[in-house]
C-alpha cells in the first residue's frame, strides 16, 4: 500500500527481566510479539484487547517513545527507527499521542496555555506573539474556554484535562494521532463528548488515528478497521462492520458477547472466558489463546496458527477458521 500513513511489520518489544545474583537477563516479558498493521491516510484504526495485552506498548513503540526489539515501523514511508535523534524530533509534531491518564500527562507546574503552546515555540512554528492566539483557537476547537488558558492542570475536571491533552496534541497540526485509551479514565457521559470531539477533529482536519481501547463499543463508534490483540499478538483484524457481523476468532467472539446492548429484552449467548490472561513472560505454546479457548483442539496446543487473510481485508489467526 503506497498511501499508507503508517506501516508496521512484525513489531516486537520485549522487556528483559533480570534476576539471580549478578542481574543476568533471565527472561523477557513479550509485551508485543510480532504485530503487523497498516493504516491508510484518513483511516481510524481501533486496537482492542484486555489489560496487559500489549496495546499501549504498541502505541508507544510505533511512536518510538520506547525502543523496539525487532520489526519495522514506517511513517509516511520513512523508517522511524533509522532516523537520527534530530530528525526524529523534527518529525514528532506530525505524529502525536493522547494519553490515558489526563492528569499524569500534564506537567503540574505549568499553566496549560504554556504547556499547549510550548511545542509550537520550540519547533519555531509560531512566534511568541502568535502563540497565545493559536492556543486560544485550539482551546476553542477542543471545547475549552479562553479563560482556561492561565490555569494549572489541577484546576480542571477529568474531562477538561483530557480536552487539554487533546488540544496539546493537535495544536501541532499532526497528521497521525495515537490515542491510548483516551476515554477509559472518564465517566460515560464525558466519554461520549470526548469521542465526538475525536470524530469532529477527524472530519475537520483529516486526522489519521490509531485508537487504543479495551472497550469495543467505543471503538465501534469511531473506527473503520479494528484489530484485536491477545497477549502481544494480533488475533483478528477486519473492517469494522465485518468484524462485528462476522467475528471469526473465538477470542473476538467472547469480547463481542461481553459488549452491553441497550435492550434488556434481547437475550443472547454470553461466552465467558475461564481464567486470567496468561503471563507474557512465558506465553502458552502453540496458539497463545488455547488455555482459555472454549473450542481448542490438540493442534492449537502444538502449533501457532498463522495470521492469514480469509476474506477481503479480514485477517485471523486461528486453526479452526
Amino acid at each position: 500500500m503506497s498511501d499508507a500513513m503508517l506501516e508496521v511489520k512484525d513489531l516486537k518489544k520485549y522487556y528483559p527481566i533480570t534476576g539471580g545474583l549478578f542481574g543476568r537477563t533471565v527472561a523477557h516479558v513479550k509485551a508485543v510479539d510480532g504485530i503487523s498493521l497498516s493504516i491508510a491516510k484518513g483511516e481510524t484504526f481501533g486496537l482492542v484487547g484486555e489489560s496487559g495485552s500489549g496495546k499501549s506498548t504498541v502505541g508507544r513503540t510505533i511512536l518510538r517513545l520506547t525502543d523496539k526489539t525487532a520489526g519495522e515501523v514506517r511513517f509516511k514511508g520513512k523508517d522511524l527507527y533509522s532516523l537520527s535523534k534530530q530528525d526524529l524530533r523534527q518529525i514528532r509534531p506530525e505524529m502525536q499521542l493522547v494519553f490515558q491518564d489526563p492528569y499524569g500527562s500534564l506537567n503540574p507546574r505549568m499553566r496549560i496555555g504554556d504547556a499547549i503552546g510550548e511545542a509550537l515555540l520550540d519547533h519555531g512554528r509560531a512566534s511568541r506573539a502568535e502563540v497565545r492566539d493559536k492556543v486560544l483557537e485550539t482551546l476553542a476547537l477542543c471545547g475549552l474556554s479562553s479563560s482556561h488558558i492561565d490555569r494549572y492542570p489541577h484546576e480542571f475536571s477529568g474531562g477538561q484535562r483530557q480536552r487539554v491533552g487533546i488540544a496539546r496534541a493537535i495544536i501541532l497540526n499532526p497528521e497521525f494521532l495515537v490515542a491510548d485509551e483516551p476515554v477509559s479514565a472518564l465517566d460515560v457521559s464525558i466519554q461520549a463528548q470526548i469521542i465526538n470531539l475525536f470524530s469532529d477533529l477527524r472530519d475537520r482536519q483529516g486526522l489519521t488515528y490509531l485508537f487504543i481501547s479495551h472497550d469495543l463499543s467505543v471503538v465501534e463508534h469511531l473506527c473503520s478497521t479494528i484489530g484485536v490483540m491477545y497477549l502481544g499478538s494480533m488475533v483478528e483484524m477486519a473492517p469494522r462492520d465485518e468484524l462485528f457481523a462476522q467475528p471469526l476468532h473465538p477470542y473476538t467472539r467472547a469480547l463481542l458477547s461481553a459488549v452491553p446492548i441497550p435492550d434488556p429484552t434481547l437475550k443472547r449467548e454470553r461466552i465467558v472466558l475461564r481464567g486470567d490472561i496468561p503471563s507474557p513472560v512465558d506465553p502458552p505454546s502453540g496458539c497463545k489463546f488455547h488455555t482459555r479457548c472454549p473450542v481448542a483442539t490438540d493442534a492449537c496446543r502444538e502449533s501457532a496458527p498463522e495470521f492469514r487473510e480469509v476474506g477481503s481485508g479480514h485477517f485471523v489467526a486461528c486453526h479452526l477458521v
Partner: peptide
C-alpha cells in the same frame, strides 16, 4: 507521563530534562 508527553512533543532533550 508528562515527561513522556514532553518527549512526544518533540522538545529538545535538554528542555525535557531541565524544564519539565
Amino acid at each position: 507521563d508528562f515527561v513522556r508527553t514532553a518527549r512526544a512533543k518533540g522538545l529538545k532533550e535538554k528542555v525535557v530534562v531541565y524544564k519539565h
